[in-house]
Write a protein that binds this DNA or RNA. Structure first.
Lengths: 343, 343
DNA sequence: GCGTAGAGTGGGAGCGCTCCCAAAAGGTAG
DNA sequence: CTACCTTTTGGGAGCGCTCCCACTCTACGC
């Protein structure tokens, strides 16, 4: 892997490569950057010199001269523990990494939780330290998307804040995911199907509720509002919601929770109340996280294609950076229902 | 053409800041970089100009001129799913981010799983694209640590490969963690305590086994080798090991698994065999992951201070970059036993 | 009063690249 | 063979910063 090279001074420069190939600096640069305006003969000579010297372009010099950085930032709201929970973060990163592997773009990780960090972030972007931005888990009142739009900075977000975004967005199909989960419960013969929702100012949570409603309506079931319990994506919230549901509608025979963690909370309450899962009450979650796989009984859950979302976001961002203007694509990726013992 | 540039758009430069403050470029630079050789009066003038113009230094120019990048790389072996599993990855990142928040260092995320990527990585490092490297989850036969040592690149690893490393390393106290877990089982009156180990060519796994042995010996218990079942950190491996244990020593009344995931596999088998947890067999895991919290019964587990490890690694790396030579500190952070229902 | 040591300051000389213009080389038609 | 295009090529001019040398200006000693 490492060629022992006796060089007088540090890393070779473009100038040295050019000299070795017997061409000018400009020509060498053209070859390195794949310009077509170079004769085949010259190209070969330069490529040989590059190989012999083990030349690697200096990023800083390139960035300074070319006014670009060959780097994108992944902005992570560290305050939001939900995002950091398995499997979201690692899967997104994996997808982004996969999409970036083909290019020589660098991935900058930016934790922007506190105000202080958001201020720093704004500076980063303004100072053009990156060519593009990947925004994940954006809050409804997050100013960042608009700021980026204003600055004309290429950016893609995952998880929309509303139906119409100023930025390109990649999301999973929350509506269909929820609907498929409830359809599944219906096909199992359940009739009194409740749902535990997430914060409804999160667009995805709203869409999951919409999907639930749609499935219930399509099946001609009773659309009782008492079967809808709002919660906040936490385990405690899920437990509380489950208690409310049991109090209001003791005949409930199935629950669709908008996250696995809330389902875990619900399961706890159901068990305390002596309801068997799935015999008395069937339970379905959302996310297909480790929690679902290791719950007892194993939890049926809606899987989101997180890694693919990361890949897709990156793909769109790279296109935007390349200047292929695709006026804010809003991409929606399909979910998959993973059926386990709880339903 | 020597006409002073009148820049209407774009970011302000140092030159412009200097002009505005009525000083030379060199002096302005000194203020920006906190040099003490500037009079208070001048400093104030420059700082005012910086504030008025909203000046942010250009990283590329700084890197090019100063021969440093103000960036460190976090090298992640993406192939190893164990690392990507919760909570390791996100917690490390959180810790690193926290330590970096004080500085204006950037964090570069590098997925180096495949050979192709490792080659690229070597180039990155050789081309001095970063000032330092954070290495996590290093394999026993990983060449990277030695390569970095050779190149004289500041680097810190988490999780050692052996007792003596060429690089600074930060690790959790696997030995004491394991010992405390087994001590706990002993204090609960267990006498036939088995262990399910991870791959023993992983240093941490070996240390956990050592801790187990030490605790067993200290308590004067029977050090039966049949109570030691080697596995591989996977759920299936844990299940297989548990089956072996039950076959060899049906009287086993406690199991210390070297990871929560393996404990989950063991739990499955115990349940199948009709052994109650913790009544018949007490179970303890390692990692304190989501799996542990959501297992039924909730799993007693050894918590590693992952986030703190990330913070500590970064702290050490920054010192190394700053040139404070602390000859390869080997830092070991304490673990904590989280007692739950399974023991 | 003259010298001398700092402290404080200005700006030239790059860092290694891309951009772009002008010159050289090669082709073609008349 | 000449005029005129069309590639192909070389290299100057920066990009915005840090480093460092030389210079100015003070304060102090004798």
């Amino acid at each position: 892997m490492t060629v022992a090279r006796v060089r007088s001074g540090g890393r070779p420069t473009l100038e040295e490569v050019a000299a070795r190939a017997g061409v000018g600096r400009g020509t060498a640069s053209r070859v390195i950057n794949g310009s077509p305006r170079v004769s085949a003969h010259t190209r070969e000579a330069v490529e040989a010199a590059v190989a012999e010297l083990g030349y690697v372009p200096n990023r800083a010099a390139r960035a300074l001269a070319g006014n670009r950085t060959d780097a994108i930032a992944l902005v992570v709201p560290e305050s939001e523990s939900r995002f950091f929970a398995e499997p979201y973060f690692s899967d997104i990163v994996r997808g982004v990494g996969a999409a970036l592997a083909e290019t020589d773009m660098q991935l900058l990780l930016t934790l922007a939780g506190s105000d202080r960090e958001r201020r720093r972030l704004a500076q980063y972007l303004t100072a053009h330290r990156v060519d593009g931005v990947l925004l994940v888990s954006v809050h409804a009142d997050d100013p960042l998307p608009d700021l980026l739009e204003q600055l004309g900075m290429p950016a893609v977000m995952s998880g929309r804040r509303s139906a119409s975004e100023p930025l390109a967005a990649v999301d999973s199909d929350n509506f269909e995911g929820a609907r498929s989960a409830v359809d599944h419960l219906i096909s199992r013969g359940r009739r009194s199907i409740a749902t535990i929702t997430g914060h409804l100012d999160v667009y995805g949570a709203q869409r999951r509720l919409d999907g639930y409603r749609k499935a219930v309506a399509s099946a001609g079931l009773d659309p009782d509002e008492r079967l809808i319990a709002p919660a906040d994506f936490t385990e405690e919230g899920g437990a509380r919601a489950m208690r409310d549901l049991l109090a209001r509608r003791p005949d409930v025979d199935a629950v669709f929770a908008a996250s696995d963690v809330m389902a875990a909370g619900a399961r706890q309450v159901l068990r305390e109340e002596g309801r068997r899962i799935p015999d008395d009450v069937a339970l379905v979650g959302f996310d297909d996280s480790a929690v679902a796989r290791h719950m007892d009984p194993a939890l049926t859950s809606v899987r989101q294609p997180i890694e693919e979302m990361g890949r897709e976001m990156t793909r769109v961002l790279l296109q935007e950076i390349a200047g292929e203007d695709l006026e804010r694509p809003q991409i929606v990726l399909p979910t998959e229902l993973i059926v386990r013992d709880s339903s």
